[in-house]
Nucleic acid binder design. Structure first.
Lengths: 125, 125
DNA sequence: CTAGATACTTGCGTTATGCAAGTGACTCGG
DNA sequence: CCGAGTCACTTGCATAACGCAAGTATCTAG
């Protein structure tokens, strides 16, 4: 990974600063863990972009892929601590959106005030 | 502006979710107000992208362009309340970057804990 | 052994970004 | 009044990212 500068803002954006990465992360946070589930989000992400973003998130250590069953082998994606730590960014986006864009869907309050730890319950496997 | 969904997260990202917009906003927050100053940021933004992002920020009402002198007429860009309200997003990006990316430049603490009002001192003109 | 489900990959056209060079308004020194 | 300089962009063109549709690979149930 090379960064545009050593500013922590631009560097973070070098990793997650595009149209889709945080949307995928948000979706995992609200419980969508499988590729098929993620394809069904209302933003209509396309298959190649989703695969690409999941690979990027895994490569950057924000998400971990693990088999949740054998025969047939199926995988799910879960947040790591590094990924869950983006919750404050996402929460700040929620607050800005609700204040400045009319008629947005309002997430439940417990999501808006949750802490990152809520989203990586078991780092074991 | 059309949005991918009515989720406040994806909608906010529809406006500012690219590689450059928040970097420009950050630069304005730390006191760079003129086109020429903004061109000198360490991330090396190109002229067309900067002009494009400034136009977008103005169109979306996050930034206001105003003449700071006549003869020769010169303009500067200042945050509106709507733009300054993105400070929490930027601060969250700072904290994540400092925690998870090694060797980043560390902004002064008063920037990291400031509130949006700091950045739109006078809405008059 | 064939249909269906899951999880991707490939191809290809459109949009966004990056780099270099050019333009237009103004100002100042001679 | 003329030419050089500054500021704030704009234009042209090449590369990278995104969006859509279709195809592939693996497994499983019937």
């Amino acid at each position: 990974m090379d960064f545009r500068s050593d500013c922590p803002i631009s560097s973070t954006l070098d990793i997650i600063g595009d149209r889709w990465t945080l949307v995928v992360l948000r979706s995992i946070m609200v419980g969508k863990r499988r590729y098929g589930e993620l394809l069904e989000i209302p933003e209509r992400i396309s298959t190649n972009i989703l695969a690409d973003r999941l690979a990027l998130l895994e490569r950057e250590g924000l998400v971990r892929k693990s088999a949740y069953q054998e025969r047939p082998k199926r995988y799910e994606y879960r947040l790591t601590e590094k990924g869950a730590d983006l919750l404050p960014v996402i929460q700040a986006l929620v607050e800005w959106g609700l204040k400045h864009i009319p008629c947005r869907w309002e997430p439940p309050m417990d999501y808006r005030t949750a802490s990152p730890e809520t989203f990586y319950p078991a780092e074991d496997d």
